[in-house]
Amino acid sequence: MTDAATMTKPEARKALDGNGAAPVVRVRNAVHAFKGRGVFSGLDLDLFKGEIYGLLGPNGVGKTTLMKAISGRVRLNGGEILIEGADILREPSRLSAIGFAPQEISLYHHLTVKENLQVFAGAAGVPQAADLIRILMDETGLAARADQICATLSGGYQRRVNICVALLKRPRVLLLDEPTVGIDIDAREAIHRLLDDLRRKGAAILVSTHDLDQAQRLCSRVGLVQNGRIGLEGRPEALVREAFGDRLEVVAELRAPADAPQRAALEADGFAPHVSETQWVRYDAADAVDVADLQRRLSHSGLRVREIRVREPDLSSLFLRGTQQETAP
């Protein structure tokens, strides 16, 4: 197995941005601490035009802080952030290229969709706001709900309005913090279509998400924040292929947690702890998977097996392994 962290950075960027264009957003050697606890320790990240970059990582690793830093709302303790080649500290006007949709539904809930957009357009000093608002509501599928009070909208539509506000400045860079959290599948798909459309129109989009399925299907590239830096980074399918090759993921789900001798037996059989005490995982070559034999051997060790699942590994497999490595003693 190749270390995915070492295979990605220059190669993946070159592959993605074959014409050699400079990144729209470049974060270099970002260092940040909050209440004495280090959040970033030399984090690098490049975001290119026409890509959706998925920022992955468990809670508390600093995904939101990174987005706030890029949007100028948090000042880093060290390092630099360049927007279209210019340092945002020296040229804060560059921040006008950025639209940020926070994880919270940051709207006036007692106002209508159109009134919200008018308020935020006014605050941002958007010229010819009425025309732009009409266009954006069409693009985001909100036109039919323009006069509906936001509090009465479904979660999915509220998310759309939240993103629509971030689009008011016609940003070249869009930062979306958990844009699909807490909404149903249909609404999520609608937001995916919206983001893909924006990407095709040339926007550079940075998305933080816990939804690995979303990241795998939506993102051109993903990066896993580990130990204050981007650990794994690259195209989702390339990362998975590089990490697991053609092997399959075999998960043994037990009826009860394994005791010490049983754990030793599982580990001797190539299993590692998975998402819970009753789940163990290993990766086998496709032609070596024999579920019946595996079931027999585990039962022989005194383990009560609920089921054995076999599937192709995906980004969640990689993510779990990455976070387990991070939390391992």
């Binding site: 706030k68 709302r73 926070p102 539904i105 940051s106 935020f120 605050a123 000093g125």
Partner: peptide, 19 residues
Amino acid sequence: RRNAILDRLTSSAGGLAKA
């Protein structure tokens, strides 16, 4: 402040003082 609207407003052209 609680639902980050102020963050949005203050990152706009006017900034916190105008808000």
